[in-house]
């Protein structure tokens, strides 16, 4: 509770939001606030100003293209993804979003906020990595599109630079996806998680909670031994904390990768 002094502004367009971020050094974009406001309560972060992105319709919405490509505005909430008919084109998205935190958080938390905060225990960084999402970043000088591999740079660090905003996440068509996690209690914070996706016959597995950024693996097949081998070959050195030793996390990464891959294979084949 009890944040430090902060300034606030609510822009009326994305362009204005970017101007405000550029003009006010020390300002941060406020998305759903379900992470940032908590960090500010702990006074672990104290931006000088908050540029509130809520209400910017340009950043919201889910579009399904005829080829099956999904484009999701960065300020689209988890609840909107869960409820969206379009998002069901890639069912894993809604399924995973429904596991994040609780109703209240899902009502305000956004896909953009989740991946931009890049907390290693978040659900979506490994998921967008596995499904090969592309992130559109807008700055004063225009737009650029980066892959998930390029997007996540470190704990709480992404390719979104100062004065820039993530505007949308683009996800190619597909259905061969899987996700598995061991959480604190049912649907709680992830102790370890893994997302998997089979696209054109090739498998991508992304591991969460084991490194600063999602660890992307490309096992030979979804066969359990192949996946386990790929995880071992990655030489993971996961962090130890109160919920898991490094050894336990490394083990969970293997088990969950196998499970996510199996689910992906089952769905790809179906």
């Amino acid at each position: 509770m009890l944040l430090r002094e902060v300034e606030y502004v609510k822009p009326s367009s994305v362009a204005e939001a970017i101007e405000l971020l550029v003009e006010n050094e020390g300002a941060r974009a406020l998305a759903g606030g379900q992470t940032l406001i908590n960090v500010m309560k702990a006074r672990a972060a104290s931006p000088d100003a908050l540029v509130d992105l809520n209400g910017l319709e340009e950043l919201k919405g889910i579009d399904l293209a005829p080829d099956g490509t999904l484009t999701i505005g960065a300020m689209t909430t988890y609840s909107e993804i869960v409820a969206s008919a379009e998002a069901k084109a890639r069912p894993i998205l809604g399924e995973v979003c429904a596991q994040i935190a609780d109703v209240q958080v899902r009502n305000r938390g956004t896909i953009g906020g989740n991946i931009c905060s890049n907390d290693p225990t978040n659900h979506l960084p490994p998921l967008v990595t596995a499904v090969g999402a592309r992130m559109t970043i807008l700055g004063r000088d225009g737009e650029r599109v980066v892959s998930a591999e390029e997007f996540f740079l470190g704990v709480y660090m992404t390719a979104v630079g100062p004065g820039e905003l993530l505007t949308r996440v683009t996800i190619p068509a597909g259905k061969g996806d899987g996700f598995a996690a061991v959480t604190l209690g049912v649907d709680g914070t992830c102790i370890a998680n893994a997302a998997a996706s089979i696209q054109d016959g090739s498998l991508r597995v992304a591991l969460g909670c084991v490194d600063a950024v999602p660890v992307l693996l490309r096992p030979e097949s979804a066969d359990a031994d192949a996946v386990r081998e790929a995880v071992r070959a990655a030489g993971l050195e996961p962090p130890s904390d109160v919920h898991a030793s490094s050894e336990y996390r490394r083990h969970l990464a293997e088990v969950l990768a196998v499970r996510a891959a199996a689910q992906a294979a089952e769905r790809a084949g179906g």
Binding site: D102, D241, V242, H243
Partner: peptide, 24 residues
Amino acid sequence: FEYDEEGNLLTPNFYDYHVPHALD
């Protein structure tokens, strides 16, 4: 309530101190 060797509490609030909820 778990502590590290320096005496820091590692479960200082409900984020890491998981209290059961309705699904649990």
